[in-house]
Computed example of a mutant assay.
Amino acid sequence: MYHPILHANKTSPFGDLTLEEFYQKNQVLHSYSFICTKNKTKLYTQTWSPIAPSPAYPPRGIVAMVHGYASESGWMFETTAVAIAKLGFLVCAIDLPGHGRSEGPRGHIPSVKPVIDNCIQFFDDVRASNSHLPAFLYGESLGGAIAMFISLRQKEEWRGLVLNGAMCGVSRDFKPVWPLEKLLPAAAMVAPNWRVVVAGNLVERSYKERWKRELVRRCPRAKRSFEYPPASTALELLRVCEEVGRKCREVELPLLVLHGEDDAVCDVESAELVYDLASSTDKTLKVLPGMWHQLIGEGREILEVGFEVIFSWLKERTK
């Protein structure tokens, strides 16, 4: 198993290489562009594809990736995109509104529905240009919930769904303390941008290795405010978890659910319930002992085991 994060250092996920040198070393082609949404917001998009030795070796499939809250399609998330591209896939990802290089108030997602529309707009364009390739959805944390909602909107368009530490339910330890959880709807209405500390610190609870927490914060576009979502966003994240619980029975795609047993952000029991209730006839559950919320934040042993499960699952379904 190869994952570029194994060669990262404390200051860069790309090690001592420039970004262009990083692509060249990993033999992938990279492109980026901006799309304009219906409400005139510019969103940053990226694609990665393997440098094939000849035209006789086309990509084996498409993997559309959705990052989580307080993340982006670049930086550490990008290393996973490159790892999947090296397997022979065309990979695409988008910075959600208010994240990364996309426009929008930083970290504000008062409603996930337009975000789903944004992702579908971009992913449809990628698939339209490569309609002969099987397409898969991959989501981490909040991105996992968004990927699931996309799959339900477009049941006939996707070949499989990968949920890595998906937001199927918020951990009891991470929910707002009582009585603030009960008061959150009122707070979101009166002061939607109020960044009250409604839960534990997101970065501190997500990445087990300390140096990777600092690496997350070294991202040029990182904001400390991301680590505590505003009231309106916190309320929406809780609502998203409820909707995942209601709709997971409708999932029929081949499904991989990978989750950390010690995830203190997104509840492992909720992820197991999504797996149990999904209607998919081809479904796999992998709960990794000792793993926190972010697989990429683990030490080498757990990281290699987890990503090998994901990589093997994708390759098996494109044979």
Rank of each mutant, 00 (worst) to 15 (best):
G61A: 15
S102A: 11
G74V: 09
S54M: 06
L237A: 08
W194F: 15
R106G: 09
S49P: 10
W75F: 14
T45A: 08
G290A: 12
E272V: 13
A188T: 02
A187Y: 00
K212F: 09
V177T: 00
Y32D: 05
A128H: 04
G200A: 11
D125K: 14
P110R: 07
M148V: 01
C266E: 05
C219T: 00
F122D: 02
R217T: 03
S312E: 08
V240M: 15
S312I: 05
V115M: 13
G98S: 06
M65V: 10
G88I: 05
G160C: 09
H108M: 15
Y32C: 07
H7I: 11
S280L: 00
Q46G: 01
G290H: 12
P230D: 15
I302N: 02
V63E: 07
M167W: 12
A231M: 08
S232C: 09
S111G: 08
M65Q: 12
P53G: 11
R246Q: 09
L295Q: 07
A264V: 07
M291I: 04
R317L: 06
A271G: 08
L87D: 06
P55R: 13
G104N: 07
P97D: 10
W194C: 03
E261I: 00
L314Q: 00
P58R: 15
F77L: 03
R221G: 01
F311E: 04
C248M: 12
G98V: 11
K38V: 06
C241H: 15
C92P: 05
T11C: 07
V305D: 03
R317S: 05
K319S: 08
A271H: 10
S141L: 08
V170H: 04
E252A: 07
A64H: 13
V196S: 01
E304W: 04
V197N: 06
M65L: 12
K286S: 10
S131A: 15
A85T: 06
P176Q: 01
V287R: 15
K182D: 02
L29F: 13
P50S: 11
A52E: 00
R195W: 03
R127K: 11
A70C: 06
M291R: 10
K286N: 02
G144N: 05
N9I: 02
G143S: 11
S312N: 11
Q46D: 02
K25D: 02
V82G: 00
G165Q: 01
E209R: 08
H3I: 03
P229C: 13
A278P: 03
R195A: 04
E103L: 09
F174E: 01
L215N: 04
Y138L: 03
N193E: 14
Q24T: 07
A234V: 03
S141M: 14
A187F: 03
H30T: 10
Q24E: 12
K283V: 02
Q154R: 10
P114E: 04
F89G: 13
A93R: 02
F311T: 02
I35Q: 00
L256Q: 11
P59N: 08
P59Q: 14
F174A: 02
I150E: 07
A234G: 01
P176C: 05
H108L: 15
K113S: 06
S171W: 05
R239N: 06
L183T: 02
I84Q: 07
L163V: 03
P59D: 10
P220I: 04
L258K: 10
K247F: 05
I302K: 09
H259E: 13
L253Q: 00
I296V: 10
V190K: 01
R249K: 12
P254L: 13
Y44E: 08
H30S: 07
E204Q: 14
A147Y: 06
P176M: 04
S225I: 04
